[in-house]
Design a protein around this nucleic acid. Structure first.
Lengths: 125, 125
DNA sequence: AAAAAAATAGTAATAATTACTATTTCATGA
DNA sequence: TCATGAAATAGTAATTATTACTATTTTTTT
């Protein structure tokens, strides 16, 4: 893959934040910083970066796709009240993969978990 | 909510299969059965049924939304090779919710897990 | 520095989903 | 049971998110 300034900007931005931005959010932020970049380029590069494993694509019901610069195994939580989407930094449960591998006749590569939560803000309202 | 024949058809169909159909698949199947129904009605009802908890909406990267008639806690697996999407019938790991609740300052309602797998068919090719 | 390959910007097109509106269906109660 | 009103539908139009296209630009190689 040939180097491109735009791809670097996109990746650097997504890696630098923990907000799990959408394609459009990445685009708007980079434009705000006066970077010369088009929306199509953002979509294309988020896609190739995800496919290369340099970013992670997150897909949830009723939302646009989001992107995560943290590619290490970790889990996510979404507040069912306000929609706030955050990282959950607990250790990866490897034994779960082993259990499924044994129970079903499949090779398990990994798993992802999304927690449905009520965040502190919403709980205290 | 007022009764409607169409909503009943939609729900009965989704509950009767374990294929996790998309809105369009539900629509096509019901039309094939000569049912009088429109695509908009299918979308609208899948949405209200999901919101009522009578169906479950499943959202995955790079795919259309799917719907699951089994609303009991269970997990899912997707083959990273062929995309086959199946149920994973193992017990719900309640302790995980407790652990996250203790580590983070959030109320955990539930969690969902998706396993990335290589299904038996793909493994044996 | 020239040539080739790959990426971009900007726009057009597509796909999935949602909104709109006139009509129909369902539920209520006189 | 039948008139009334509320809610749902069919069919179409509109919107939203994403992908495709093409002329131009950037990067890499020679």
């Amino acid at each position: 893959m040939k180097y491109s300034k735009q791809r670097e900007l996109i990746r650097d931005y997504v890696v630098s934040v923990n907000t799990h931005p959408t394609a459009e959010e990445v685009y708007k932020e980079l434009r705000k910083e006066k970077k010369n970049i088009s929306l199509g380029t953002v979509y294309r590069n988020l896609d190739v970066l995800s496919k290369q494993g340099l970013l992670k694509r997150l897909c949830l019901a009723n939302t646009k796709d989001r992107f995560d610069g943290n590619t290490l195994y970790h889990y996510h939580a979404i507040c069912t009240n306000c929609g706030e989407f955050t990282d959950v930094n607990i250790n990866y449960f490897s034994f779960i993969d082993k259990e499924v591998c044994e129970k079903l006749d499949v090779k398990v590569l990994s798993h992802s978990i999304i927690f449905n939560t009520i965040c502190p803000k919403c709980r205290n309202i």
